[in-house]
């Protein structure tokens, strides 16, 4: 979504989700593409991250969503195509016609878009962060120059849990951590675990990071 309406929609989402946004001091956000990866627990996750981003980044950021879910039904298709401009990827290995990593790579190198990725693959309960799927690793290997930004979302599982249609108006947080890259010679398992821990560190208030000021509502 672009244009003057987008700014209003973003402000409305921030108001309704009561989100407090915090940034790591080492994080610079300009027009260059980035891969944001976050914990996943609610349909609101993407819209909240999207609304929290500064305008130039927001306009070129697209969420990565599951094709099997978002192409089912007219409403979902309309939302994912028109409103969020989601990059829909095929989760099922067997039905795949194209490699989703190729598509995402084109999006970043060709369209210069940033993407929002939920490497857990599916929405969790919000209590734990599941092991990451390997898509993030493949992207990091192919695009070594693109910064990977961990994002921690809090409380959205309580605002709109899996399986519910109506949200309740609690307050949430969206924390952006320090950008990272794939280390030289880092194995897939080590990288994915490190990425997962970088999201967890945001939750626990890593030193120097966002939400480490000691006045956080949750910890």
């Amino acid at each position: 979504m672009k244009g003057p309406g987008a700014r209003l929609v973003a402000a409305a989402i921030r108001l309704l989700s009561g989100v407090r946004v915090a940034w790591h001091e080492a994080l610079e956000l300009d027009g260059r593409p980035r891969i944001f990866f976050a914990n996943h627990m609610s349909h609101l996750d993407f819209i909240v991250i999207w609304s929290a981003l500064p305008k130039p980044v927001r306009e070129s950021t697209r969420p990565v969503a599951a094709k099997d879910y978002w192409e089912r039904g007219r409403l979902r298709r309309c939302l994912s195509e028109k409103v969020f401009q989601a990059a829909l990827v095929d989760r099922g290995r067997a039905t795949r016609t194209a490699n989703p990593i190729d598509e995402l790579e084109t999006l970043i190198t060709g369209d210069r878009s940033s993407i929002i990725l939920f490497p857990e693959g599916t929405r969790g309960s919000g209590d734990e962060i599941s092991p990451f799927k390997s898509g993030l690793y493949h992207l990091a290997r192919r695009l070594p120059a693109t910064p990977l930004v961990p994002v921690y979302l809090e409380n959205l599982n309580r605002i709109l849990p899996k399986g519910e249609v109506l949200p309740i108006p609690l307050l949430s947080r969206c924390l952006f951590g320090a950008p990272t890259r794939l280390g030289a010679g880092e194995t897939r398992a080590a990288f994915l675990e490190r990425a997962r821990r970088s999201v967890l560190a945001l939750r626990d208030g890593e030193p120097g990071g966002p939400g480490s000021t000691g006045d956080d509502p949750q910890r």
Binding site: S125, L166, I168, P169, L170, P217
Partner: peptide, 25 residues
Amino acid sequence: FMALREFVTLNPTKRGDHRTLFWVF
């Protein structure tokens, strides 16, 4: 509404409270 929002946010509620809270709010 805002005070209740803060109160419920800080007091951990569970998944089973979702619809009750919808009524309350």
